[in-house]
Protein backbone atom coordinates (compact mmCIF):
# COMPACT_ATOMS: atom_id res chain seq x y z
CA UNK A 1 0.00 0.00 0.00
CA UNK A 2 1.53 3.39 -0.92
CA UNK A 3 1.98 5.71 2.01
CA UNK A 4 1.23 9.40 1.64
CA UNK A 5 4.56 10.41 3.13
CA UNK A 6 7.69 8.80 4.45
CA UNK A 7 7.23 7.79 8.06
CA UNK A 8 9.48 9.21 10.70
CA UNK A 9 10.62 6.76 13.33
CA UNK A 10 12.08 8.01 16.61
CA UNK A 11 13.27 5.92 19.51
CA UNK A 12 11.28 6.61 22.64
CA UNK A 13 13.02 4.03 24.83
CA UNK A 14 16.13 2.07 23.96
CA UNK A 15 16.97 -1.23 25.65
CA UNK A 16 18.66 0.39 28.65
CA UNK A 17 15.94 2.96 29.15
CA UNK A 18 13.31 0.25 28.91
CA UNK A 19 15.18 -1.84 31.48
CA UNK A 20 15.29 1.11 33.89
CA UNK A 21 11.60 1.81 33.38
CA UNK A 22 10.67 -1.80 34.12
CA UNK A 23 12.86 -1.78 37.27
CA UNK A 24 11.08 1.32 38.50
CA UNK A 25 7.65 -0.10 37.64
CA UNK A 26 8.46 -3.27 39.61
CA UNK A 27 9.31 -1.19 42.66
CA UNK A 28 6.17 0.90 42.34
CA UNK A 29 3.98 -2.18 42.01
CA UNK A 30 5.29 -3.61 45.27
CA UNK A 31 4.71 -0.26 46.99
CA UNK A 32 1.20 0.00 45.54
CA UNK A 33 0.31 -3.53 46.65
CA UNK A 34 1.95 -3.14 50.08
CA UNK A 35 4.19 -6.11 49.44
CA UNK A 36 3.72 -9.22 47.39
CA UNK A 37 1.39 -11.38 49.49
CA UNK A 38 -1.80 -10.73 47.53
CA UNK A 39 -0.15 -9.65 44.29
CA UNK A 40 -1.13 -11.19 40.96
CA UNK A 41 0.14 -9.90 37.62
CA UNK A 42 -2.13 -10.27 34.59
CA UNK A 43 -0.55 -9.54 31.22
CA UNK A 44 -2.69 -8.60 28.26
CA UNK A 45 -1.94 -10.59 25.11
CA UNK A 46 0.45 -10.25 23.40
CA UNK A 47 3.26 -8.05 24.67
CA UNK A 48 1.64 -7.35 28.01
CA UNK A 49 2.20 -11.01 28.85
CA UNK A 50 5.94 -10.74 28.22
CA UNK A 51 6.18 -7.51 30.20
CA UNK A 52 4.27 -9.03 33.13
CA UNK A 53 6.68 -11.96 33.13
CA UNK A 54 9.68 -9.57 33.18
CA UNK A 55 8.23 -7.46 35.99
CA UNK A 56 7.35 -10.56 38.00
CA UNK A 57 10.94 -11.78 37.75
CA UNK A 58 12.28 -8.36 38.75
CA UNK A 59 9.99 -8.30 41.79
CA UNK A 60 11.09 -11.81 42.74
CA UNK A 61 14.74 -10.72 42.51
CA UNK A 62 14.38 -7.48 44.43
CA UNK A 63 12.17 -8.92 47.16
CA UNK A 64 14.05 -12.20 47.39
CA UNK A 65 10.59 -13.64 47.77
CA UNK A 66 10.50 -17.38 48.43
CA UNK A 67 7.22 -17.84 46.55
CA UNK A 68 6.76 -16.96 42.88
CA UNK A 69 4.50 -14.08 41.99
CA UNK A 70 1.40 -15.62 40.35
CA UNK A 71 0.94 -14.39 36.81
CA UNK A 72 -1.77 -14.83 34.26
CA UNK A 73 -2.55 -13.93 30.71
CA UNK A 74 -5.66 -12.33 29.32
CA UNK A 75 -6.73 -12.20 25.71
CA UNK A 76 -9.42 -9.58 25.38
CA UNK A 77 -10.30 -10.29 21.76
CA UNK A 78 -13.67 -11.81 22.66
CA UNK A 79 -14.49 -8.77 24.82
CA UNK A 80 -13.78 -6.17 22.17
CA UNK A 81 -16.59 -3.80 21.26
CA UNK A 82 -15.58 -3.47 17.62
CA UNK A 83 -16.08 -6.97 16.14
CA UNK A 84 -17.24 -6.55 12.59
CA UNK A 85 -15.45 -3.27 11.98
CA UNK A 86 -11.90 -4.54 12.19
CA UNK A 87 -12.54 -8.02 10.88
CA UNK A 88 -11.63 -11.18 12.69
CA UNK A 89 -8.36 -11.33 14.52
CA UNK A 90 -6.58 -14.25 12.98
CA UNK A 91 -5.23 -15.49 16.29
CA UNK A 92 -6.85 -15.45 19.68
CA UNK A 93 -4.18 -15.79 22.36
CA UNK A 94 -4.28 -17.87 25.47
CA UNK A 95 -6.25 -16.74 28.48
CA UNK A 96 -4.98 -18.16 31.76
CA UNK A 97 -5.99 -16.91 35.20
CA UNK A 98 -3.85 -18.29 38.07
CA UNK A 99 -6.44 -19.55 40.52
CA UNK A 100 -9.20 -17.66 42.25
CA UNK A 101 -8.53 -13.89 42.36
CA UNK A 102 -10.95 -13.14 45.20
CA UNK A 103 -9.13 -11.08 47.88
CA UNK A 104 -6.18 -10.63 45.53
CA UNK A 105 -4.69 -7.44 44.15
CA UNK A 106 -4.63 -7.92 40.40
CA UNK A 107 -2.29 -5.70 38.40
CA UNK A 108 -3.09 -5.56 34.72
CA UNK A 109 0.06 -5.14 32.65
CA UNK A 110 -0.01 -3.89 29.06
CA UNK A 111 2.48 -2.37 26.66
CA UNK A 112 0.63 0.75 25.48
CA UNK A 113 -2.32 2.67 26.95
CA UNK A 114 -4.19 4.63 24.29
CA UNK A 115 -8.00 4.83 23.94
CA UNK A 116 -8.64 2.78 27.06
CA UNK A 117 -10.88 0.32 25.25
CA UNK A 118 -8.57 -2.62 25.73
CA UNK A 119 -8.45 -1.95 29.47
CA UNK A 120 -12.23 -1.64 29.56
CA UNK A 121 -12.47 -5.07 27.89
CA UNK A 122 -9.88 -6.51 30.27
CA UNK A 123 -11.80 -5.26 33.31
CA UNK A 124 -15.00 -6.85 31.97
CA UNK A 125 -13.27 -10.11 31.26
CA UNK A 126 -11.52 -10.22 34.63
CA UNK A 127 -14.85 -9.61 36.34
CA UNK A 128 -16.26 -12.70 34.63
CA UNK A 129 -13.58 -14.82 36.29
CA UNK A 130 -13.76 -13.58 39.87
CA UNK A 131 -13.84 -10.50 42.11
CA UNK A 132 -10.37 -9.24 43.08
CA UNK A 133 -10.31 -6.86 46.05
CA UNK A 134 -8.42 -4.37 43.91
CA UNK A 135 -7.43 -4.03 40.26
CA UNK A 136 -4.59 -1.71 39.18
CA UNK A 137 -3.24 -0.83 35.79
CA UNK A 138 0.42 -0.74 34.83
CA UNK A 139 1.59 0.21 31.32
CA UNK A 140 4.98 0.69 29.74
CA UNK A 141 3.86 3.60 27.55
CA UNK A 142 0.97 6.04 28.02
CA UNK A 143 0.47 7.75 24.68
CA UNK A 144 -2.60 9.81 25.67
CA UNK A 145 -5.69 9.94 23.44
CA UNK A 146 -8.13 8.39 25.91
CA UNK A 147 -11.71 7.72 24.79
CA UNK A 148 -12.81 6.33 28.15
CA UNK A 149 -12.32 7.57 31.74
CA UNK A 150 -9.43 5.20 32.44
CA UNK A 151 -6.08 6.08 34.02
CA UNK A 152 -2.98 3.99 34.64
CA UNK A 153 -1.68 3.64 38.18
CA UNK A 154 1.89 3.03 37.06
CA UNK A 155 3.43 4.31 33.84
CA UNK A 156 6.88 3.59 32.41
CA UNK A 157 6.95 6.51 30.00
CA UNK A 158 4.40 9.11 28.88
CA UNK A 159 4.40 10.59 25.41
CA UNK A 160 2.01 12.84 23.48
CA UNK A 161 0.95 11.35 20.15
CA UNK A 162 -1.61 12.09 17.48
CA UNK A 163 -4.24 9.70 16.13
CA UNK A 164 -2.20 8.88 13.01
CA UNK A 165 0.93 8.08 14.99
CA UNK A 166 1.94 4.60 16.01
CA UNK A 167 3.77 3.32 19.03
CA UNK A 168 5.71 0.09 18.46
CA UNK A 169 6.84 -1.87 21.49
CA UNK A 170 9.48 -4.48 20.77
CA UNK A 171 10.44 -7.08 23.35
CA UNK A 172 13.41 -9.40 23.31
CA UNK A 173 11.32 -12.58 23.64
CA UNK A 174 9.19 -11.89 20.57
CA UNK A 175 11.08 -9.33 18.52
CA UNK A 176 14.71 -10.04 19.29
CA UNK A 177 15.37 -6.74 21.06
CA UNK A 178 13.94 -4.30 23.59
CA UNK A 179 12.90 -0.95 22.17
CA UNK A 180 9.96 1.44 21.95
CA UNK A 181 9.54 3.51 18.79
CA UNK A 182 7.15 6.31 17.93
CA UNK A 183 6.27 6.47 14.27
CA UNK A 184 4.86 9.78 13.05
Amino acid sequence: MPRPKAEERTILLDARAMSRALQRMAVEIVELAHGTDDLVLIGIQRRGVELAERIAKLIEQQEGAPALIPRGALDITLYRDDLGTVGPKPVIGETHIPGDLTDKHAVIVDDVLYTGRTVRAALDELADFSRPKRISLCVLVDRGGRELPIQADIVGKSVKTGPDDRVDVLVEELDGRDQVDVIR
Binding site: L78, L83, T95
Partner: peptide, 24 residues
Protein backbone atom coordinates in the same frame (compact mmCIF):
# COMPACT_ATOMS: atom_id res chain seq x y z
CA UNK B 1 -6.76 -24.30 9.55
CA UNK B 2 -7.94 -20.83 10.61
CA UNK B 3 -11.14 -22.32 11.99
CA UNK B 4 -9.29 -25.11 13.81
CA UNK B 5 -6.75 -22.66 15.27
CA UNK B 6 -9.50 -20.30 16.32
CA UNK B 7 -11.35 -23.17 17.99
CA UNK B 8 -8.41 -23.84 20.35
CA UNK B 9 -8.88 -20.78 22.61
CA UNK B 10 -12.65 -21.36 22.62
CA UNK B 11 -12.13 -24.71 24.33
CA UNK B 12 -10.86 -22.76 27.35
CA UNK B 13 -13.94 -20.52 27.40
CA UNK B 14 -16.09 -23.58 28.14
CA UNK B 15 -13.88 -24.29 31.17
CA UNK B 16 -14.34 -20.84 32.73
CA UNK B 17 -16.51 -20.27 35.81
CA UNK B 18 -18.70 -18.02 33.69
CA UNK B 19 -18.82 -19.88 30.38
CA UNK B 20 -19.62 -16.83 28.36
CA UNK B 21 -17.82 -14.09 26.47
CA UNK B 22 -19.50 -11.03 24.98
CA UNK B 23 -18.07 -11.43 21.46
CA UNK B 24 -21.46 -11.77 19.72
Amino acid sequence: RLILDTAEPFKEVSERPIKKVPAL
